[in-house]
């Protein structure tokens, strides 16, 4: 038998982990961990940076294998670290990923002079707007609520259950753009732009999938548990 992917353990060297899974460099950045990890283990690096190794391993393992399952036994402080991680991810998408994709889609649209490409540009801008609203809602309503619940132990007239309902699938439109660019829209000479856009979209998609998994499978259920049973 044996599973497809070995789970990452806290006793292995951080550098070894990063060489096998370079996408985790981004995860380190979001946890505020600086590179130059020398010979240290994951556990040592996490403790130096005041990050719970359990939280780090959960995020790393979910990034590597999306079917990874983690039991819900995070403490309030660990949940704060997770919220912080998610906020940093939002900032990364808004400040780096989206502007670049939008810029390239704009160039592609100008270059091709095709009406459908102008529509793709409009479509993606609309998608970006939706995602912004979604992040805004999380940054300004959900996350402050969770942090306040933890710090002040104060449940308000709000519950993460409302959040769950608000949490619609923002990935569907991303899939649509990928499908259009790969399958349906004939390519002229825009190859390097389109390739750049697609690579960025696939990266974004993979990252967003882990992101929503952390929200849906860890954050929401764990906070729901706090709401019901008090803090751990």
């Amino acid at each position: 038998m044996g599973s497809k992917q070995e789970q990452v353990q806290k006793t292995i060297k951080m550098s070894k982990l990063l060489f096998s899974h370079p996408q985790l460099i981004l995860v380190l950045e979001r946890f505020g961990i600086k590179l130059g990890v020398r010979e240290k283990t994951i556990e040592e690096i996490c403790l130096e940076n005041n990050i719970s190794p359990k939280v780090f391993l959960m995020v790393a393992n979910l990034n590597i294998d999306s079917s990874y399952h983690q039991d819900l036994d995070f403490s309030a402080q660990e949940i704060k670290q997770i919220v912080n991680y998610l906020m940093k991810s939002h900032a990364y998408y808004s400040a780096e990923v989206f502007p670049e994709i939008i810029q390239n889609i704009h160039l592609m649209s100008e270059f091709s002079q095709k009406p459908e490409m102008q529509l793709v540009e409009r479509f993606f801008n609309g998608y970006k707007h939706e995602v912004d609203q979604h992040f805004d809602y999380e940054n300004h309503t959900v996350f402050p609520y969770i942090l306040n619940l933890i710090d002040a132990n104060a449940a308000e007239n709000y519950s993460v259950i409302d959040y769950r309902e608000h949490h619609d699938d923002i990935q569907e439109k991303l899939d649509d753009v990928k499908k259009l660019l790969i399958e349906h829209l004939p390519q002229k000479a825009d190859n390097n732009l389109r390739r750049k856009i697609l690579f960025a979209l696939f990266d974004l998609d993979a990252d967003l999938q882990t992101h929503s998994k952390i929200e849906n499978e860890i954050l929401i259920p764990q906070v729901e548990q706090f709401e019901k049973q008090g803090l751990v």
Binding site: L119, V120, F123, K173, D176, K179, P186
Partner: peptide, 15 residues
């Protein structure tokens, strides 16, 4: 077609 949103269907139709 493999796309869900109406906007993407429009793009397909135009293309």
């Amino acid at each position: 077609i493999g796309v869900k949103s109406t906007a993407a269907l429009v793009i397909y139709a135009v293309a």
